[in-house]
Design a binder for these strands. Structure first.
Lengths: 121, 121
DNA sequence: GTAAACTATGAAGTGTACTTGAAGGTCAAG
DNA sequence: CTTGACCTTCAAGTACACTTCATAGTTTAC
């Protein structure tokens, strides 16, 4: 598929996809160039971009997502090391979930006080 | 207290606190200027900054935090309107928590597959 | 009375993640 | 055979949240 179609399927823009490629988040397994120099994408590109998008929504930077994906493909780590890295990322997510829940609790706690003098700092 | 002490108590830097003031996140109820032009802060400043910090950790922008805090102090909204705005923010937080949990589920699902050919997109 | 450690301002620089613009090549439809 | 909708690259611009720098005034300790 062409970049326009990939953009449609992922909810990104063609410019963002080119930017991600430039940042090393996509590689030759996701696209090839046709004779006219147009990028053609595989289904793997859709899944990779959706994974990156989900990571972004979860607060990971592009660099973090690239590192995470890279651990999958490196030969410099054992399978157990790779699993440990992913488990570490999961723990990070759980810490963040706890932070959001703390903020939620803070807002809930302030809710009944709203409007009172000095209730909100 | 001076800016250095406020920074210590909040985990921010003096520069960041001045920046927040410049961005309208602190006002005269949080500090006054001494004769030497030094800022002196009240305890309210500590709580305000910790609230902002918590909001930041939860993914809210400074502009969002300022808006949220402003709803507390405006006279242009009824108490019910204010509560509705805060409830809306809480709903936003819950959507974000769901996104983080989705990412967590994605990573957990990939965990047992790691190292297998084509397992990770 | 001077050195260290604070305070101030304003402007410029940094990193992340894009977005926009310029200038041009390609392709399908009528 | 031209119009419109794609595609290309590269450079510059934008928004956010700071950080750093330059310059200068103030306060505390010895």
């Amino acid at each position: 598929m062409l970049i326009h179609e990939l953009a449609r399927q992922t909810g990104l823009t063609p410019a963002t996809i080119r930017y991600y490629e430039h940042e090393g988040l996509l590689d030759k397994t996701h696209s090839y160039r046709a004779q006219n120099n147009y990028r053609h994408y595989t289904e793997a590109a859709v899944e990779r971009l959706l994974l990156i998008k989900q990571g972004q929504a979860a607060g990971f930077t592009l660099a973090e997502m690239r590192e995470l994906i890279d651990t999958w493909y490196t030969d410099a780590l054992t399978l157990d090391d790779k699993r440990a890295i992913v488990l570490h990322k999961i723990a990070e997510l759980e810490r963040r979930i706890a932070e959001l829940e703390a903020m939620r609790a803070t807002l809930l706690a302030k809710l009944p006080l709203m409007g009172q003098v000095g209730a909100v700092t």
